[in-house]
Simulated scan of single mutants.
Amino acid sequence: MYANEAELLNVAMFGTTSKEWKKSNPEKALSGLNIRDFADVPQLTVLANLESHNADLIRQGLPPKERILKLRELAIIQLKSLRNINFTYPIESPHISPFSNQNHVDNSLKDLLSESPKKDMDE
Rank of each mutant, 00 (worst) to 15 (best):
M1E: 15
Y2K: 15
Y2F: 14
A3F: 15
A3H: 14
A6N: 08
E7G: 07
L9N: 05
L9T: 03
L9E: 03
F14I: 02
F14S: 07
G15W: 01
T17V: 04
T17A: 04
K19Q: 10
W21C: 01
K23W: 04
E27H: 12
E27Y: 10
L30G: 14
L30W: 09
G32S: 07
G32H: 06
N34W: 13
I35Y: 01
R36Y: 06
R36I: 09
D37P: 03
D37N: 13
A39W: 05
D40C: 02
V41L: 11
P42T: 07
P42Q: 06
L44T: 04
T45G: 03
V46A: 02
N49Q: 14
L50W: 06
E51H: 13
S52F: 08
S52V: 09
H53I: 13
N54W: 11
N54Y: 06
N54H: 11
D56S: 15
L57I: 08
I58C: 01
I58R: 08
R59W: 09
G61V: 10
G61Y: 09
L62P: 03
K65Y: 09
R67K: 06
I68M: 01
L69C: 01
L69W: 03
L71W: 07
L71A: 06
R72H: 04
R72C: 00
R72I: 00
A75L: 04
I77L: 04
Q78G: 02
L79A: 01
L79K: 02
K80M: 11
K80A: 00
L82F: 10
L82E: 03
I85L: 06
N86M: 05
Y89M: 04
P90V: 01
P90Q: 05
E92H: 10
E92L: 06
P94Q: 08
P94M: 06
H95F: 10
H95S: 08
I96D: 15
P98M: 02
F99Y: 12
N101C: 02
Q102V: 06
Q102D: 15
N103M: 10
N107Q: 12
S108W: 02
L109M: 01
L112E: 11
L113T: 00
S114W: 04
S116F: 11
S116G: 14
K118T: 08
K119I: 15
D120P: 09
M121F: 09
E123L: 11
E123W: 14
E123F: 15
